[in-house]
Computed example of a mutant assay.
Amino acid sequence: MSEWQIHSVKYAERGQRTRADSFIFDDNHDAPHDIDYYVWVLRQGDQTILVDTGYDDTEAAARGRPIRLNPVAALAPFGIRPEDVDQIIVTHLHYDHAGGLHLFPNATLHLQAAEMAYATGPCMCHDTLRMPFTADHVCEAIRRLYSGKVQFHDGDAQIADGITVHCIGGHSRGLQCVRVRTQSGWMVLASDAAHFYENLHARKPFPIVVDLQNMLDGFDTLERLASRPDLIVPGHDPLVRDYFASDLASHIHRLDTGPQKAVKT
């Protein structure tokens, strides 16, 4: 029974947001609500699997959303060389999750087929749906496909012993979460199936959504997959850094050991 270490790696943050940017139907819509940006590192022995890549300085400048650390620099405390990364689970192709694919040129991408179809299909004729994507990132995924370095999944799939992916959709058509066996039990990296703990626990959907029912049903899926609710890790919540202990550097937190205090639900 393989148990994996999981680390969250914060590479950016953004203030000057309100709760209206994070929740549909929120009564306190104009109150401030900050967001963090993460990638995740899965390790077991000499195996390393990266979950998402963040975005780089070029994308940061283009969108006016500065990053604190280039993803490669953010991963430096692990001793990870980008050319040595051979597997990346891409939860979805939005800019803040797939904007650094080109930084890891030798990696095979694990991607839901529905996500590639969505990012290259007629839905992208709509400005609102296209906004979180960047053409160069999608083209990088296509280039990787043509070099034989994309493994497509359709729904649930096993990536390695103790690691599975599960298509949820909602926020993006082929959004997938990642279920990982750890010393604390089955932990679920929700990615953007739940940006914040409050999205999940209060059943408050995030405003960027292609299928609202899938997003709402996805909250139930996350709870079904995890050994217990506090082992569901949202994709963008600053509270992750409060609940889990820092490790290796101030921007890195160890998740597989479990939260260091009770998660409010």
Rank of each mutant, 00 (worst) to 15 (best):
D56Q: 12
G79N: 09
R173E: 13
P122T: 04
R181P: 04
D84F: 03
P122H: 05
N70P: 01
G79L: 08
S8D: 02
R241V: 01
H29K: 15
E59A: 14
L255G: 00
Y37A: 00
L109H: 05
H110W: 13
I252S: 00
A107C: 08
I24C: 15
F219S: 06
N199R: 13
P32W: 15
D230V: 05
D57P: 06
E115T: 12
S22T: 12
Y55T: 04
I159F: 00
Q151R: 02
F133L: 13
A226K: 04
E3K: 06
D136S: 11
K261D: 02
R17G: 14
C139D: 14
I67H: 05
G169S: 09
T58Y: 13
K149S: 02
T221D: 03
G169R: 09
A193N: 12
I232W: 07
H7W: 01
D21C: 14
A113N: 02
S250C: 06
S246E: 02
H201C: 14
I67A: 04
Q87N: 02
D192S: 04
C167H: 12
H102W: 01
L101Q: 03
C177V: 13
R43L: 08
T164M: 14
Q47P: 03
F152I: 04
L75E: 03
L175F: 01
V188A: 04
T91V: 10
R130K: 14
T48Q: 07
L216E: 07
D242G: 09
Y146A: 01
N70V: 03
S184W: 09
E3N: 10
H195K: 12
D34C: 10
D56T: 14
S2T: 14
V72R: 00
P77S: 06
D242Y: 13
D56Y: 07
H171E: 08
D56A: 06
A190V: 01
G170K: 13
L225F: 02
H137P: 07
F206P: 05
K204W: 11
Q176A: 09
C125K: 14
L129S: 02
Q87R: 12
P71N: 00
D230W: 01
R179E: 14
H171C: 11
I208E: 11
A119E: 08
K264G: 05
H7K: 01
S172T: 08
E59N: 15
D57E: 11
F23M: 15
L175V: 00
H166G: 02
P259H: 05
G235N: 00
G185C: 07
T265A: 08
G155A: 07
D27C: 09
I49A: 05
K261L: 03
D30H: 10
S22E: 11
F244Y: 07
D154Y: 03
L93N: 05
A245N: 04
P238K: 12
V165A: 09
P32L: 05
H195T: 07
A119T: 06
I159W: 00
Q213M: 13
D156N: 04
A74G: 07
G15L: 15
Y11N: 05
G99C: 09
S2R: 02
L225N: 11
P82S: 00
H201R: 13
M215E: 14
R143T: 06
P238D: 14
G148S: 03
A31L: 15
C125I: 12
D154K: 04
V240P: 04
F104W: 01
L200G: 10
G258N: 03
A73L: 08
V178Q: 03
I24P: 13
R179N: 10
L239T: 10
Y197V: 03
S250Y: 06
Q16P: 02
H29V: 11
C177P: 08
